[in-house]
Design a protein around this nucleic acid. Structure first.
Lengths: 214, 214
DNA sequence: CTCCATTGTGAACGGCGTCCACAATGGAGT
DNA sequence: ACTCCATTGTGGACGCCGTTCACAATGGAG
């Protein structure tokens, strides 16, 4: 079904071929539909057509698999933000462009949370997985993590003279707080049931609040 | 230890006396130390000195127990916010008082998250548990839920002329987003390891951003 | 072509949530 | 005061989970 490469997949041969990747793909799919707690090791092996223990040749334990899925989810979030920025119309005004890039971080973030709530929850299900030594696994196509994209955008704001350098320090935490909080409100909280238009509008208000209040 | 009434508690007699309460207390304690996933039904019955199935006479399933624990955690959060507001010095200026009460919601919220991260996580582990029909179970001593306290404070801001009525609509979602996002950043995110002083300072900056940007 | 590190298997353990049938209990109604 | 029975707790079992141990298949290095 999943077509784990090698033709008809792992059945025929004793060796699977790319089990680690297959388990990760299964984990991502489970996270997509059910969030982090739906990432269950035995089910992943089942989907890969393999005995439960086989997973332990590629992941130390369930937490390691979940961590890899979380990294992938963070990468997908980064990709969504990058796509949001890439879709921006070209602007002659560098200041307007910097502001647009900053706002695109917030809108891309919130849109991803609504489009892929399971992945979004999984991305943040592991404490302090946002940045770190091996950030590459959590990056998007452009090689930046979501947090990195935010810092870039804030630096751009300072460069364009839209944010006083004195207020730059810690600004990522303020901006991230607001945007991430809204995302959780939209997928788990009282705003869960609002329609797309309202969500977009609230997102716009929030980004404006941050932009104005920073 | 817990002194579940009836002298030396549930051992001697067949009947426990107040099992529902004992299970809830055990659940709260587990949530306090390990967050929502640490609320495990069998362990609660073990702590109450009772067979696992006995729990099903008082809670439909584990989710029901977790829901009751979540309600209690929300109530504790409300109590913390109320205490924060009650500790405010009396002010002759009603506008200053309104602003202080509003800010106290944010600081009380963030302080509770840092002081009781397990309970805080548990409070928000259930979708859309913030308000609703039976809000009494989630309220503090004053009878208001955390969300209710926030709306009260925002109404106070409008009443004091500090917030234009035109901007009142949806303001709770913007303010809540920012404060809740910061709280999660402080307990699960990259700000997990900061000292109390820094946390207080960032909290202050954030509340200022909201206050200014709203 | 042989050896052996790598990768998958089989069986088992303890823990979990949950269900069913059964036993103790103590208050309501006589 | 005694009986009945709804309530509350028990014992045992099921299927699922993560995880470990000993063992078997494999295929590339020598």
């Amino acid at each position: 079904m999943t077509g784990t490469m090698a033709g008809r997949a792992g059945r025929a041969t004793y060796r699977h071929g790319d089990l680690r990747h297959a388990l990760l793909a299964a984990g991502i799919e489970m996270a997509r539909t059910g969030g982090p707690e739906a990432v269950v090791l035995r089910e992943a092996t089942r989907r890969a057509g393999v005995a439960p223990n086989a997973a332990y040749r590629h992941f130390r334990d369930r937490a390691a698999l979940l961590g890899a899925v979380s990294d992938a989810a963070l990468g997908a979030l980064a990709a969504a933000i990058e796509a949001e920025q890439a879709a921006l119309p070209a602007s002659g005004d560098p200041a307007a462009a910097a502001r647009a890039r900053f706002r695109a971080v917030g809108t891309g973030y919130v849109r991803f949370a609504r489009a892929e709530p399971g992945l979004f929850r999984t991305a943040f299900s592991i404490p302090d997985n946002l940045d770190g030594d091996d950030a590459a696994a959590r990056a998007g196509p452009g090689g930046r993590t979501p947090f990195g994209l935010l810092t870039d955008a804030l630096d751009g704001l300072v460069g364009a003279g839209l944010l006083p350098p004195g207020r730059r320090s810690g600004a990522e935490y303020l901006a991230w707080s607001a945007v991430h909080g809204l995302a959780t409100l939209l997928i788990d909280g009282p705003l869960r049931a609002v329609d797309d238009e309202t969500a977009e509008q609230i997102g716009h208000s929030l980004v404006e609040m941050v932009d104005h209040g920073l």
